[in-house]
Amino acid sequence: MARIKNITIKDVAAHAGVSVGTVSRVLAKNQTVKKALFDRVNASIVELGFKPNLAARAMRAKHVNVVGLIVPDITNPFFAQLANELERFSSDHNHALILASSRNQWQHEALQLQAILEHKPKAVLIVPSDENRSIDVPDDTLVLALDRNVDGIGSICTDQMASAALALDHLIELGHRKILYIAGPENTATARQRKDGFCARVNELKDQGVDIDLRVTGGAFSFESGDQIAREVLSQPNPPTAIATASDQQAIGVIRAARDIGVVVPQQLSVIGFDDIALADIVVPRLTTIRQPVADIAKCAIDRLFDDTPADSDALFMGELIVRRTTAVVSKA
């Protein structure tokens, strides 16, 4: 059987009638290469079926066209959407995205970071598993925090406190005064900030004479947590007329529990979430929520890799109230 010859960069150079250095500049998307020459080399690459050896390039270069991403939980729909947007914007810059999960454990996060750094990425983006622990940032690779702040490195996040206040304002405008807030895990800054923003707005309105009966409880960012808490609360006398949650997953769990118990959403119970994951617009009734600007956060992160913004600078985005079918004017019955 004849052995199939591996096409090399020298073969491409010979086919295109250029030097090996010119082919390398084309592969690196060097803008100094004239368009006609760029197109000729690319035509040879396609015709010959040449596949660049990224590992070999990594040995010679400081970085390869790769961006690393570490998230706490790859099953969380919000992080899946974030990864999708980051991949899209990375691709616009001819970079691939490597995704890893820390499993919400800082020790595993450190291991994943070192594994990704072996690929010599352009940068590593991290949704920190524990913002109270510092991240060992390498000198030659940009590291940015997404969704959560960490001391010592730049972060790109939603303004969690101000955005959470939007949820309360919406419920108050609908006439709700007996409200349950389901917070997220206390060990995450996003959960604490959303709860603090919601409660701070309650206190502001109370100072203005608005009578609000607020109860706060906590749980995980999960369907099961929202379901379990709602079943317990809605089975008690004098249940709340509205439930606000720290995540859409919790809110969808609340809707499921309410349906099973026989509480009609939104006629008897208004529900509002946070994140605006894809499922929020699919569940029945469709979920009113606070949308995190995922595309804006992802674009800002990827643009940061290619501009002169200081590595330790922060960016903050405002959430948006998305009114769908799970909130309504409080029932007078």
Rank of each mutant, 00 (worst) to 15 (best):
D196S: 13
G197F: 06
G197Y: 04
F198N: 10
F198I: 11
C199L: 12
A200T: 09
A200M: 12
R201L: 07
N203I: 09
N203T: 10
E204F: 12
K206M: 13
D207T: 05
Q208H: 12
G209R: 15
G209W: 13
I212D: 01
I212H: 03
D213V: 01
D213M: 01
L214E: 05
L214K: 10
V216F: 05
V216A: 06
V216C: 05
T217C: 15
T217I: 10
T217F: 06
G218S: 12
G218P: 02
A220Y: 05
F223Q: 03
S225G: 11
G226Q: 03
G226H: 04
G226E: 02
D227G: 08
Q228N: 15
I229T: 05
I229C: 06
A230M: 12
E232R: 08
S235G: 05
Q236S: 11
Q236T: 14
P237T: 02
N238M: 01
N238R: 02
N238T: 00
P239N: 11
P239G: 07
P240A: 02
P240F: 07
A244T: 09
S247L: 08
S247R: 02
Q249L: 11
A251W: 15
A251E: 08
G253M: 09
I255N: 02
I255H: 02
R256P: 03
A257E: 15
A258M: 02
R259I: 10
D260A: 14
I261Y: 08
V263F: 01
V264D: 13
V265F: 01
V265R: 00
Q267L: 00
Q268P: 15
L269F: 06
L269C: 03
V271Y: 00
I272F: 12
I272P: 10
F274S: 03
D275I: 06
D275M: 06
I277F: 11
I277H: 09
A278F: 04
A280I: 03
D281I: 01
V284Q: 15
V284A: 15
V284M: 15
P285L: 06
L287T: 08
L287I: 04
T288R: 06
T289S: 11
T289L: 01
T289G: 06
I290E: 01
Q292E: 14
Q292R: 12
P293A: 06
A295H: 02
D296K: 04
I297H: 00
I297K: 00
A298I: 06
A298Q: 03
K299S: 10
K299A: 11
I302F: 09
I302S: 13
L305G: 02
L305T: 02
F306S: 13
F306W: 11
D307Q: 12
D307H: 11
D312F: 03
D312M: 07
S313N: 10
D314L: 07
L316K: 00
F317K: 03
M318Q: 05
M318L: 08
G319P: 08
L321N: 00
L321D: 00
V323N: 09
V323H: 10
V323P: 07
R324G: 03
